[in-house]
């Protein structure tokens, strides 16, 4: 099993540094989304990029609906990769849901993480009485429902939706948009696991240095949510970017790189 981790998660390595930076993509995309910022770190770091099992070019046959029915399956992916690479303590850069996956992994295996850099984290997307996550359960259901007509591209994916069997992991249509390519059944489950979870209680278990990078405005992870994460991870730092959207590493790569660099310099006195 172990020797397959690098293939299972389509692990790609680059860079010439000693310290490892592990980049973990979020829901909806794959490791390609780091493309605009990785070159800035290649000189000083060993960069490790991967696709979560079920995403991108990972080995879809390893996707187990039971294992990945909670973030723990993804946490295990991260731990497996760290162990397999024998990379020492890594700088973990996680986007969106991966921020929380990183937090859970660091809470479980502090020995594997040097620090966490969270881009647009949200520990809970659903509002409750005293917390505003930005969404209702109904909003998430609506999103999952619309996935049915948007497995990118629409025309090649609607057929299995109508004809049935979209839950079968063997089902594999080559979709036009490989960055967001995902088996329909897996996409739905990943959406559920991402948006319906509540990991607020887990934040205080994080005991490694953490940076929260928050965009403003961000519809997916609003300002108050980023503040919440910052306040509940002891000793964490918080950087707000004057960039709108949920993917600053795509829309504002320079600002994102600067925020990460500044933090790493402060932390390690680079």
């Amino acid at each position: 099993m172990r020797q397959n981790v690098l293939i299972r998660n389509n692990v790609n390595q680059s860079g010439t540094g000693k310290q490892t930076m592990l980049f973990a993509h979020g829901y909806g995309c794959d490791q390609n989304m780091w493309r605009f910022i990785t070159s800035d770190f290649e000189k000083n770091y060993r960069l490790v990029l991967f696709d979560y099992t079920g995403s991108g070019k990972s080995d879809i046959s390893d996707y187990d609906y039971k294992k990945y029915s909670s973030l723990n399956g993804y946490v295990q992916d991260v731990i497996d990769i760290c162990e397999e690479l024998n990379a020492g303590k890594v700088i973990f850069v996680g986007h969106s849901v991966s921020s929380i996956i990183g937090a859970l992994a660091a809470a479980r295996r502090q020995d594997l993480f040097s620090c966490l850099i969270m881009i647009g984290p949200s520990p809970c997307y659903i509002n409750d009485e005293s917390y505003s996550g930005g969404f209702s359960k109904q909003d998430i259901d609506e999103h999952i429902e619309m996935l049915d007509s948007n497995y990118l591209g629409w025309s090649s994916a609607i057929t299995p939706v109508i004809a049935g069997q979209p839950e079968s992991p063997e089902f594999a249509t080559e979709l036009h948009n490989s960055f967001c390519r995902m088996n329909p059944g897996i996409a739905k489950q990943f959406a559920r696991v991402t948006f319906l979870g509540d990991n607020r209680q887990d934040l205080e278990r994080v005991a490694v240095p953490t940076l929260v990078i928050q965009c403003n405005p961000d519809v997916i992870a609003p300002l108050s949510v980023g503040r919440y994460v910052h306040e509940h991870i002891k000793g964490s730092s918080y950087t707000q970017l004057d960039v709108s959207g949920h993917c600053p590493h795509l829309t504002a790569p320079e600002e994102t790189v600067r925020a990460i660099r500044t933090y790493l310099e402060e932390l390690y006195g680079e």
Binding site: F135, H143, L147, I220, H246
Partner: peptide, 22 residues
């Protein structure tokens, strides 16, 4: 709607930014 907003931010914008079209 809310479902569409999530889709826009998690799929459509990343695709547009990375490959230039959707």
């Amino acid at each position: 709607g809310s479902g569409g907003k999530i889709y826009l931010e998690t799929h459509m914008m990343p695709l547009l930014l990375l490959q230039g079209n959707v």
